[in-house]
Every structure is written in C-alpha cells, then in structure tokens.
Design a binder for these strands. Structure first.
Lengths: 150, 150
DNA sequence: CTCCGGAATGCAACTGGGTTGCACGGGCTG
DNA sequence: CAGCCCGTGCAACCCAGTTGCATTCCGGAG
C-alpha cells in the first residue's frame, strides 16, 4: 500500500496523462478508488469523502465516475441489489467478479485465461462476456462458520 | 407456440402443482411469461396486462413475481440498466444470459456445459457462476448492418 | 498578472424502479 | 354463520440516478 501522498500524486498523474485537468473532485475520487481492493458504491464514496472532511456533491460524483469510466480508469459493476459499484480498471480487462450473497460486496478477481466464448444463437453478435461468481466472501464465510452455519 | 387456452391451462397446472391457489394475477403473469422468449421487465408486464384489458397493480405484480421466483417458476436477471427482468425458469438452471448493448433486451441462452469454476481467492466460497454475454441481438445487429455500421 | 471561455461543480427539482403499511375482499374452515 | 388467512389494491414512501441551470474553477491568451 503506497503512502497517501504517493496515491494522490499517482491519481493526478493518471488524470493528466489523459490530457484532462486534475480537478479536486477527480483526484479525490480516483484516490479513494485506488485505496480500496473491493468495489465501492456511490454512497460508499460519498461517505468516504465526508469522512475525510471533503464532502462531494452526489451529482459531481456521478459525473466524475462516468468520466473515469469513459477514460478507462474505472469500471462499474451492477450487483444483485441493482446498485452500481466502482473500482479501478487495472490492467485486467475482461476479469471476473465475485459477489458476496451475504454482505453484497463486489470484488474484482484477477484476470483469468479467456473462456471459450459461448455460442450465441442465430444472428446474435457476441462482444464480451461478463462472469460473476456468487458465494460468500472470506469475512462472511468465517462469521457464518463461527456461528455454526455451513 | 401453443394456443392461448393451452398456455392458460399450463399456467394453472404449474401453479397448482405447487399446492397454491391459481389466482387470476398469478395465472396471468405466468401466462405472459410463458409467451415470451426474451425476459420481460416489470413495466413490460404491466403494459402487457394493460394491453389485454386486465390491468395489474404494480405491487401485486411485484409480489406475484417474487412468489414465482421463490417457487422456482421464474427467475430474475438484472441488466446494466439496473432493471430487473423476469423469465420462466425452465429446466435450465445455471444457464447463461445474453444482453443486447443496443436495445437492452435480455435473453436466456440454452443450458451449456458447466464451465470450470474459476478459482476464488483465499477464504472465499464460490457457490454459483453467472455468465452474461454482451453484444447485439439479432434484430439490432441487422438494423445496424442495414445502416452501414459494423 | 489579468482576462476570458469552456469545462467542471453545486444545488434543487425530478424520474422511475422498488418497497412498505394498511385496509378491503373473497374463499375456506370450524 | 363467524373467524381467519391469503391475496389484492391503494397510497405513501425510499433511494439510485438524472436533468436543468446558475456559479465557480482552471488553463491558456493577451
């Protein structure tokens, strides 16, 4: 885990590499995304921004996130709870996700060898395959076992 | 495609097999689901019910759908537009879905040989794998080609 | 350094899917 | 016939996400 200042600089660099101005909101959101390993919901980010005394308007947040996704810096995943969650878009394109059925958290799994593209019917044109594994995350599995559940 | 009356009887039978009363709403929703090959959104069902002169309260519809899913008669999928869509849960469990990036329609793909379950990290417990293929459905691909798009 | 234009931000009001609480109704049981 | 339970309908509500518009910020031109 890099030092906070390094994260900040890293975020600024990533943004400026895209030829865009490194505004406070963009840097902040990107920095927050860089600190987390799971994906973060919109309200999670709002809360995180609030916690560090730098509250973000929700509209700004939506727009920054859209921009980050458009720039390929972030990616969004929609969980069963129909809430979008965002994570940094690392090298791994076409990676799989893990969604915890207990706590609803979404994790990005490391890149895997590409699957054989399943055959689509007739005139359908397949472009991309999304894979989401459902189950229980480490934390939830542990508490479940501690409570005697299978 | 069976005759409408047969669909109706089929729906009644499916419901009564579960030991539940075949109420008008349940039969109607199940019948509507049986007539479609793609998945249907909540508002699509509301509209369909309206079109056949048998309007459905949206709360009733949600409850009927929840019940159908709980009974294993239907299944729900959430698309990119974070709208849940419902389809009949045929024999095919663990089937893949196809989501059209152009029109947003969701289709159920026939059952496929199960994939190798991707390895989940450390304490994670994988239970189920969701696979969604993104691309263009037959209709959208055709109109796109007709307009000279690739 | 200052000015200016476009991009980014903030606020408020709105949309729409989904949920909850509660009252009504109709069939089934004792 | 009375009571009960389940399903239905209505209305109000919640929350993620969007839109319109006024304001502010940033980076380049002068």
């Amino acid at each position: 885990m890099p030092a906070p200042a390094a994260l900040h600089d890293n975020a600024v660099r990533l943004i400026q590499e895209r030829g865009a101005s490194a505004t406070a909101a963009r840097v902040q959101v990107l920095r927050l995304l860089l600190t987390t390993h799971a994906t973060v919901s919109h309200q999670g980010l709002t809360q995180a921004a609030l916690d560090e005394g730098q509250p973000l308007d929700k509209v700004t947040l939506y727009r920054v996130l859209d921009w980050l996704v458009a720039q390929g810096l972030a990616h969004s995943v929609t969980g069963q709870d129909r809430v979008r969650r965002f994570g940094i878009a690392d090298v791994h394109h076409g990676h799989a996700h893990f969604e915890c059925d207990a706590c609803g958290q979404l994790f990005c799994l490391p890149e895997r060898a590409s699957l054989p593209m399943p055959a689509a019917p007739d005139g359908f044109e397949a472009r991309r395959v999304d894979i989401t594994i459902h189950g229980r995350c480490a934390a939830c599995a542990q508490t479940a076992h501690a409570n005697g559940f299978t």
